[in-house]
Design a protein around this nucleic acid. Structure first.
Length: 229
DNA sequence: GACCAGGCACATC
DNA sequence: GATGTGCATGGT
């Protein structure tokens, strides 16, 4: 039987990556010098522009407050004073403190080797129990701090996929994530770069308005498409 | 002034 | 289960 030239979601997710990489080049994520910085950044960047997170992390570094061990021994109110400017900072002080306490209790030493003996699923389920750590933040930590093969689904990814004909039904987080895992294999380097590229594309082209003219993913709009689920 | 920004918790329907 | 709202605040 003749195979129809169908573009499945799986094909599209595979084809989009090299196109984004060609257009934008490597993004060198996560922007942070150490795993401790990235960990703090994962919480501080929740619903906040990255540019506003940078000076807060700089201040934390100057205050010697980047390591989970140093954060965990502070009171939340003390920590609050150091987070002003990062948006929802009172909440983030509570969230970061809880996360630091968890990492410390788990034996974190500043290197992902220290948690290498714990399985990814176990870590994810434990992170999700922490206050203020939802699926996106948990997966950012797993991918960018602990270098586990976990794809991060964020608002940019959803907007891009929705606008280009995938995810028209707003599928659950884990469903969408599983599609990326299925399409790409479990490759930490690819997951790292792909998510960063989607953010870049979302910022520069697939903006809320106007529509995304010149987007490198325009191919997803045309051709034969397998009907969405 | 409204909307948005590398979400999440909580209340309500 | 889906939807709305508060959280902080500066940029567009």
């Amino acid at each position: 039987m003749e195979e129809p030239a169908m573009l499945t979601d799986r094909h599209i997710l595979r084809e989009a990556y090299p196109l984004l990489l060609d257009r934008f080049g490597p993004q060198h994520w996560w922007p942070g010098d150490t795993p401790d910085e990235i960990l703090a950044g994962c919480v501080l960047s929740q619903n906040t522009r990255w540019e506003r997170v940078v000076p807060v992390i700089d201040m934390l570094r100057e205050s010697g407050l980047l390591s989970p061990a140093s954060i965990a021994v502070k009171s939340i109110s003390e920590l609050t004073d150091h987070l002003y400017g990062s948006g929802t900072y009172r909440r983030k002080a509570e969230y970061l403190h809880g996360l630091a306490f968890y990492f410390t209790r788990r034996g974190w030493t500043g290197s992902n080797d220290s948690l290498a003996h714990i399985g990814t699923e176990k870590l994810r389920s434990e992170l999700l129990l922490l206050r203020g750590i939802g699926p996106e933040t948990a997966d950012c930590i797993l991918l960018y701090v602990l270098e586990r093969p976990v794809f991060v689904i964020d608002a940019y990814t959803r907007r891009i996929l929705e606008r280009h004909g995938i995810d028209s039904t707003h599928r659950p987080y884990e469903t969408l994530q599983a599609q990326f895992h299925d399409a790409l294999g479990e490759d930490v380097r690819v997951f790292n770069e792909y998510h960063a590229l989607l953010v870049r594309c979302g910022k520069e082209y697939c903006r809320p308005k106007p529509r995304c003219d010149g987007c490198p993913l325009e191919f997803m709009l045309g051709g034969n498409r397998e009907p969405a689920h």
